[in-house]
Design a protein around this nucleic acid. Structure first.
Lengths: 215, 215
DNA sequence: TCTGCCACTTGATAATTATCAATCCTAATA
DNA sequence: TATTAGGATTGATAATTATCAAGTGGCAGA
């Protein structure tokens, strides 16, 4: 974007460091700020009737509630820091103003939004078309790719959270992990070992149209 | 948008009428055209490993694959006419060009995209936080609202498709409908009668953050 | 009017997933 | 080193959802 517009945006912005387990935004609130995670980890949650679920994990450099900011609509999810995190907060109005003024910025916003939308569609396909075991198998494969294909790598979230992301209970995640043993997957603590890639692929049947975050 | 730009877009566009049950776009294909439904009904589907699911129904005036068009990425869903339908097809490249040139158009595209994204998030919440019975109850309430709150109204899609939209089998939809009888819901053919709104609301617990398509 | 197709329904059963309770393990803290 | 809190696991059971196999019924076309 144009550097003058960037300067305007930044002049109105706050940089702030938050302790762990702080609720940054609450489902249903008005969207006053666009949030950008610069450091740390933020969990996006949704709840209904005393149930709740983890919708996503946001890490640097990720944004959240761009859509609510654009539409000036209430947040659909809550956000909570998982660890000490540093965020940039840009007033929603400034974002909307800059969008009008700077076409490069507008293009970037649209690209980001379209990406988020497609990610959400992929997630829906994952939930509706696959069993929980298949979702876990594909999750492991994706994490492996993000670890440059290493045979052994670390899970970067707690299992209870992973269970919620995958739409299952922590108990069933434990059982699903055992079920994957015959497919050459061993998980000890947060250390994952994939000893039979082929058989895991055979079970998971990953496809870019669900599992490739960049496509 | 500016009328000159609109003219340019339309000069490159096709208007075409399709018979029922025609596959308009196929999951995984490149996105050549932005599609706009002018008349009729289009079903959006996704499939994986011999399973498939209905992701959405598009009616006039609705668009589909805007995000794929913007990102020049493959379609994540297939589209199929449910009845004789008339569509406008605009070459994706023209859409991207006009987006650069016309800031009003750009704003409209972003508003539409943000809306689609939020709809998808709401759908995910619906799927992850509610049982199939609760999803059905809320679906009925939403349809009732779209029928101006009438006590009796018609379902506008087949039950098998409704089941797929709600993420359940046709058999279980049948049973869920019977389960709703004590809550004052009767469905005969496609005619729905809600005789005890209060008790249905009590079960469904609708919230704008999931069930209001405009919020 | 008859016929056949297809959506819908129903019942029986199986698979999947959740819940509850108890225990194990680990890591932080006194 | 001992203590403890909370995540993780396990087992038993229940609830939810899917599958399979017959039916039923309505509607379009012959």
């Amino acid at each position: 974007m144009e550097s003058g517009n960037f300067g305007t945006l930044m002049r109105g912005a706050y940089v702030q460091t938050f302790p762990p387990q702080i609720e940054l935004v609450t489902e249903g609130d008005r969207s006053d700020f666009l949030h950008i995670v610069v450091e740390g980890t933020v969990e996006m949650l949704a709840s209904w009737d005393n149930r709740d679920t983890t919708m996503a994990i946001v890490r640097p450099l990720g944004t959240f509630i761009l859509a609510a900011t654009i539409r000036d609509a209430p947040y659909l999810m809550s956000a909570r820091t998982m660890e000490k995190s540093r965020l940039v907060l840009i007033p929603s109005e400034d974002v909307r103003d800059t969008f009008e003024r700077d076409s490069d910025f507008a293009r970037a916003v649209v690209a980001e939004l379209a990406q988020c939308y497609r990610a959400s569609i992929k997630n829906t396909k994952n939930l509706k078309l696959r069993s929980s075991l298949e979702r876990l198998a594909n999750y492991i494969l994706r994490q492996q790719i993000e670890s440059e294909g290493a045979r052994v790598f670390e899970l970067d979230i707690e299992k209870r959270r992973l269970a919620s992301i995958l739409g299952m209970t922590a108990e069933n995640l434990s059982r699903a992990i055992k079920t994957l043993q015959p497919y050459g997957v061993k998980i000890e603590g947060s250390r994952v070992t994939v000893s039979n890639q082929k058989s895991l692929l055979d079970l998971a049947k990953p496809t870019p149209l669900i599992d490739d975050p960049t496509c």
